Simulated assay, not measured.
Amino acid sequence: MCRLSNSLVGCLNLLAFALSIPILVTGVWLSKQAQTECEKWLETPLMVLGAFLLIVSFLGLVGAWCRVTWLMWLYLFVMFLLILLMLAFTAFVFVITNKGAGKALSNRGYKEYRLGDYSNWLQNRVNDSDNWNRIQSCLKDARLCSDFHTKFKNDNVQQFYAENFGALQTGCCMPPDNCKFVYQGPTVWNRPEGGNHTNPDCNAWSNDPNVLCFSCESCKAGFLQNLKTEWKKVTIINIIFLVFLIIVYSVGCCAFRNNKRDHWRK
């Protein structure tokens, strides 16, 4: 295995080098052509990821195939830091997504979510007005509630209440159940006269398709629930990637020893 380690490390980093180019190009393209807030938000992470992959894979490629010992040492040092970072990130995601769950409603096929059920760190992120304005913009650009309205507009009230909606749909596209609004359509609800609502989301609701419940705590809670679900999937991918990194790091250590051995023979 150690005899083939230089070739194997070189091939893996050649693949990573090739992958970094389209990622970097996509980030640069978004920085020039992005029109929506979501696209603009993606440009920086893509450019950073592409540049990082480009530099690290170049170090590993030259260090392994050209037998440059100091480049291999630098490559292994960066890989070690990346492994530590991935371990810390995986543990962090697990901790902050451990809290929060939907509340089942009587005679409803869907659940509702409360902002206070989630970790304080996540709550602080969505309660920041700048962050939430960007998130709202992304949700609107994605036509979340307009597609929701189109899909279920032919439901009568019994059919609608029996549907199994996603967390974002229940939180952002319809008022909370305890508001006791009268159903007219998926995103059209009549407010009963003389209602005394202690839930601030009831007053925040509007039938205006550009407003709806995007400013509600229920929308923030729905977003966090959706984020929690997605991050749980990311955690699984992170663990698989982490195992892969450890294997590559181990092979890289063999290549480093080969480089040192060849250097002393000279």
Rank of each mutant, 00 (worst) to 15 (best):
H197S: 02
C2D: 14
L30K: 03
L168A: 07
R108P: 05
K220S: 11
S215L: 06
A142G: 14
Y113T: 02
F17G: 10
N210Q: 07
L54E: 01
N156Q: 08
Q159D: 15
N127H: 06
N178A: 07
H197V: 03
L144F: 12
L115Q: 04
K266Q: 11
L42K: 06
K111L: 09
W41T: 09
I96N: 02
L212E: 00
V25L: 06
Q35D: 05
M1A: 15
Q184C: 02
V248E: 11
L54G: 07
G27F: 00
W132D: 00
W264P: 03
Q169S: 08
A64W: 02
R108E: 05
Y75S: 05
L245M: 12
R257D: 08
L24V: 10
T69P: 06
W189F: 05
W29L: 08
Y161Q: 12
V28F: 12
N203T: 04
R125C: 13
Q35P: 04
I247S: 12
I239M: 11
L87I: 14
S7Y: 15
V56T: 07
I236C: 02
S57C: 00
A167Q: 02
R108G: 04
S7W: 14
F165K: 11
P200Y: 13
L82M: 10
L84E: 14
N258E: 11
C219N: 04
N133W: 12
M79E: 09
L87M: 12
N164Y: 11
R143W: 09
L212P: 01
F89T: 14
R134S: 09
Y118M: 01
G195P: 01
K266R: 13
P200G: 02
C254I: 00
Y118H: 09
D155Q: 05
N164D: 11
E193D: 12
C179P: 07
P45E: 07
Q158G: 12
R257I: 09
V251K: 14
V95I: 06
S57R: 07
L15F: 15
R114P: 03
Q33W: 09
N127S: 08
D155T: 01
N6R: 15
F92V: 01
L19V: 05
